[in-house]
Design a binder for these strands. Structure first.
Lengths: 114, 114
DNA sequence: ATTACATTTCGTTAGTTGTCGAAATGAAAG
DNA sequence: CTTTCATTTCGACAACTAACGAAATGTAAT
């Protein structure tokens, strides 16, 4: 598939849009995202894989966790523009604001493996 | 579905991206698009319906034809930004340039109903 | 080395999507 | 009012997707 279509497909799912906006707040590991979205770990992992494949996020191994974050340094100028658009749009969405509240309290050492 | 996810889903298909870029050249009817994309008429109609539902294009009845064009006057500022992004990206894509060549020669009075 | 544990991969399932051809719709012309 | 013809809707089908739990992977600490 063409890269632009791939980017749009990656962002065509509400859960993946929620992930993008959560990552704008801070880096998160798989189980933190699982906790907030209330999905199976394997499902979250699959979503992250799709976003990564579209060059929208990057991962960074840290101890036993994998931290995912937005690919703000992408060489692809289109990615930068779309990132700005998606994140700006999130500011006026009440549902996403609720996710952001949860990010503040969520703690990977408590919730992972529960 | 949320409006932004709907817009991204509409643009996640290569044929629909091609349609968007063709419409940037000029308004087209269903059978002109069918001729260029080499798809069934009903398939093209379905694609146009999805783009219209996402507020990306508008239709305008003219005699026995329905002219489709880009919704450049959308009240949704996100639509305007995405339109600019999609069309700009198309300029550096050889495949889309070939579609544009065909638009110049295609004539609805010849090809429709053939 | 073995255990513990976060993550990924695999196999499955229900639901969605892109595609087609045939039938229905609707509007203009005869 | 019947025909014509561009378009839409319908019904079918193959391919793809999001979701899950279970099994595999990999890494850090015991």
């Amino acid at each position: 598939m063409k890269q632009l279509a791939k980017i749009f497909k990656a962002l065509s799912d509400t859960n993946r849009l929620r992930i993008m906006r959560m990552l704008d707040k801070r880096s998160l590991c798989v189980c933190e995202i699982r906790e907030i979205l209330q999905l199976a770990t394997s499902t979250v992992s699959a979503h992250l894989s799709i976003l990564k494949e579209a060059d929208l996020i990057v991962d960074d191994k840290d101890n036993k966790w994998v931290n995912y974050s937005l690919n703000t340094n992408s060489k692809n100028p289109t990615v930068k523009k779309i990132l700005a658009l998606v994140l700006h749009e999130g500011k006026s969405d009440q549902d996403f604001q609720e996710d952001l509240e949860k990010i503040i309290t969520v703690d990977r050492t408590n919730i992972c493996g529960s």
